[in-house]
Amino acid sequence: MPEISDHSEVQPQARLRRLNLVMMLPAVVIGGLVAVAVDAHSWGQGAILGLGVVAGVVAFERWTAGQLQRVAPACLLVAAAVWVYGALMAGSTTAFFGIMMVGTLMVPELPRHRALAATGLVAFVAATGLARAMVTPDALSDVLLPYVVLPAGIVAVVAGLMFPNKRFYDVVADLEVARAREAELAVARERIRFASDLHDIQGHTLHVVKLKIALAQKLLHSDIGRVESELREVYTLVGDTINQTKDLAHAQRRLNLSAELENAKNLFEAAGIRVDVDRESVEIDARAGEWLGQVLRETTTNILRHAQATHVRISLSESGIIIVNDGAQETQLPELRGLAALRERVAGNCGEMTVTQGHGKFRTAASFPRAPADTVPSSGRAR
């Protein structure tokens, strides 16, 4: 698999529509061809009736791609014309196949007046079939069932089924929006935690510095030795604060692997992602555990922000971690700064980190064959 450093963003709606295409398109094509073969009495009739099938198939394919609006008017016109020809001239009882496909796909996609449009569609099919009794010598009783009742009834049933189908896709879209918001909320919580730590470090220091400088001003003409002492303390305090701020900016704080694991599980579950954890019953080296916690934190953030995962598996060993999530596309994506920087830091501290993608999955792995002796891992913030 090619080595990369990012996750894919594949919309669940698009995946569902592609699944419909793979599963339903053969049945649609075969059904349409059978209908044409049964009703066509000549090659010419077969060609014309076949246009209705083509219109239905094209509309279905564009619907699965989310682009039905581009071809809907043309497909609807062709399918309607084929039904008029089939009912009034060719004596075809199955020529409504195209108008059924195109119309029932179009109606739920309309922004408004969908019920009225569905009623109009069924009425058009029924009226066209009923018109056969007016332009042919066929008795009304012979026309009603094959040309009116059955076609209109089938179209009405299919149209009725498409409304719950549309609602299902709307629910999927709503869930996707909620999941994206949850991921952004997780990132926002991390930023708030960073801001709180920064406030704790600098707020206290600045307050103390202010008091000491005020005291030094009062003692400037009466106790110069005390003033020098206060200024030295201010200098030392400011220096310590600068170091603490650098540590915070580079997130050079020790991480607890167990805490990071629990936090990752909670975040994934809140986002509707199933989590499986495989953990060997061995003691994880403390320093390696800090680095593995950093890898887990960064990977968790990237999965929430950039993947469309439904399942994550986390495997922990004595000195390594493997995180595999689904929802990755096949194309290679540009490298994320967070994972790239983390990989460099891991490599610089006697470890190895790899990220690979393929077959719809993204795999992040890190190991420390020899625990770093003098380093503390960086728990970089979410990118």
Rank of each mutant, 00 (worst) to 15 (best):
P372T: 00
S319C: 06
K361H: 12
E230Q: 00
R193T: 08
H311G: 08
A382V: 04
T128Y: 00
R381L: 11
V171N: 01
H311A: 07
R114C: 02
F60E: 01
A47W: 09
Q252N: 02
V282F: 12
V149D: 00
V208N: 09
A183C: 10
A74N: 02
D174E: 07
V57C: 14
E344N: 12
A139V: 01
L206H: 10
V155S: 08
G289E: 07
G31S: 13
E233S: 13
L342Q: 02
H207V: 08
I224N: 07
A178G: 01
P377A: 15
P2D: 08
A37S: 15
V312M: 02
E344T: 12
I303S: 06
R114V: 04
E233Y: 07
T93V: 12
K246Y: 13
A37F: 09
R287K: 13
A74M: 10
A72H: 08
V324T: 13
K265P: 07
P377N: 11
I303M: 03
D200F: 07
M101H: 09
S8M: 01
A286W: 04
A27L: 11
T356K: 11
M89S: 14
F368E: 05
D326M: 05
R383A: 12
I323P: 00
G358L: 06
T236Y: 10
G348L: 11
L255P: 12
I323M: 00
V102L: 02
R114S: 10
I322H: 08
T136Y: 06
A216V: 02
I323V: 13
V172C: 10
Q69G: 09
L219F: 09
V355P: 01
V355N: 08
G380K: 02
G358M: 01
V36Y: 02
R337C: 12
D247E: 10
L145G: 08
R18T: 02
R253A: 00
G338F: 01
E190K: 12
V57Q: 09
L206G: 01
V149L: 12
N266Q: 13
A74P: 03
S8C: 05
M23K: 10
D142F: 11
I154G: 01
L110K: 10
F168P: 01
N325A: 14
G351S: 03
R254Q: 09
R114F: 04
H199Q: 04
R70M: 00
I323A: 04
S367V: 05
I242E: 07
Q329I: 00
S222K: 04
S319T: 12
T331W: 01
R189I: 10
